[in-house]
Nucleic acid binder design. Sequence first.
DNA 1: CGGTATCCCCCGCGATACTG
DNA 2: CAGTATCGCGGGGGATACCG
Lengths: 244, 244
Amino acid sequence: MTSYGQFCPVAKAAEIFAERWTPLVLRELLSGSHRFNDLHRGVPLISRSLLTQRLRQLEDAGIVERRAAARAGGSEYYLTAAGEEFRAVVMKLGEWGQRWTRRFESIDLDPNLLLWDMQRWLNLKRFPPRRVVIRFEFRGVPRVHRTCGRWWLMVEPDAVDVCIKDPGFEVDLVVTADLGAMTKLWLGDLGFRSALRDGLIALEGSREICEAFPTWLALSPFATVDRPAESPAPHAAATHAEPS
Amino acid sequence: MTSYGQFCPVAKAAEIFAERWTPLVLRELLSGSHRFNDLHRGVPLISRSLLTQRLRQLEDAGIVERRAAARAGGSEYYLTAAGEEFRAVVMKLGEWGQRWTRRFESIDLDPNLLLWDMQRWLNLKRFPPRRVVIRFEFRGVPRVHRTCGRWWLMVEPDAVDVCIKDPGFEVDLVVTADLGAMTKLWLGDLGFRSALRDGLIALEGSREICEAFPTWLALSPFATVDRPAESPAPHAAATHAEPS
DNA sequence: CGGTATCCCCCGCGATACTG
DNA sequence: CAGTATCGCGGGGGATACCG
């Protein structure tokens, strides 16, 4: 948070934005989380005290407004107009990341995070008007996250939740998948059909539910970002494309 | 540079971009600096060893390419295609900064940086085809930068330089200005005419040169960014606007 | 649940000196 | 000029315990 000693608008903005964890906290706020614990679920590796500190800094900078919670205890955190305008920066940063980073190293795979993201963007309107429970069984989960291997997504008309313990309700659908493949799917790097065909993802449930599932799932906001143009595949490809 | 442990493209990009000093180093590279010392002039408060380290990190991340310098010793640093695409991020960040930060605190005023920026964006085509020397005398310079109070801008058809010592040539124009006002002018927060009118900036030279000077000077790339709409002045203004 | 407070360690970074 | 190497410190941040 110390100054860069420059009047340049890039420098002044970077003093706020380019602090460790801050872009992720902003991403969470921009995605619609307002409660401390929800923010923390989206950025689980930040320590709670540091999250507090970052929220205070953002408040001091006029990015975040802290309000007493309407219901229950604690506070709620809202972006100000200035904070909301970081959306363009976060989006551009994410677009860059989608185009130029390798995102499927084992160290970055996190089933909790994936499900937390998924539940945020579900097409709730397409669900039947009753409780739907989906169990996920992931293969290829990094050790740190391998608590039990099963996760539940509970979708009710007015509430969604991710559980790491069996909520006890009847399961409508079991999704068995390689975590890397599921993450690629989410990020638009793998198609649903080819994942099913190659056995990377398998669905187990009524035909109706299995067919509906792909329509329930929205993909990451960055799934549709163009990938960089291939470095022109030298000779073979060009030749191959030529009429013979 | 440690991982955030998230597959999210925002997180992966932030691991690279949201490191201390990195946005400023990228800004310099994007502005067309390639030599180590030029980069350092644009980010003078970073230590040379840390600048080296950041450039290495950017190289490892595939953002920067290091080449043996064509002339003279040392290396030159060029952005790769991936690096060039950070332009959109840096621009959005700067636009945010232009709209929402206070940039004229004394701690941020820096005459060297201001002149370094100015020389970078001069309208060289509008200069007469000979050497032109401009002397700047700034008032209100923070202590740390108050080396002598005078700076020279030397413009030759094929070379521009900023000096802190008298280069010895005849001076064509003397610009006397309050440093804060000059910075505001550069950032589009103050008009040339009103600055002259109010005595914040004074020109001393031939009539021809004085009239040409404003056309030589380009402004910051962010000077034309819209300022945020005023928070609607509550009651008085509304009432005032009503037909009576 | 929604944080605070405290301790303490590590390493990011500045300072300085050195090199080709 | 364009860096590299080394040292030492300060504080950023993790771990843990505590509170309303």
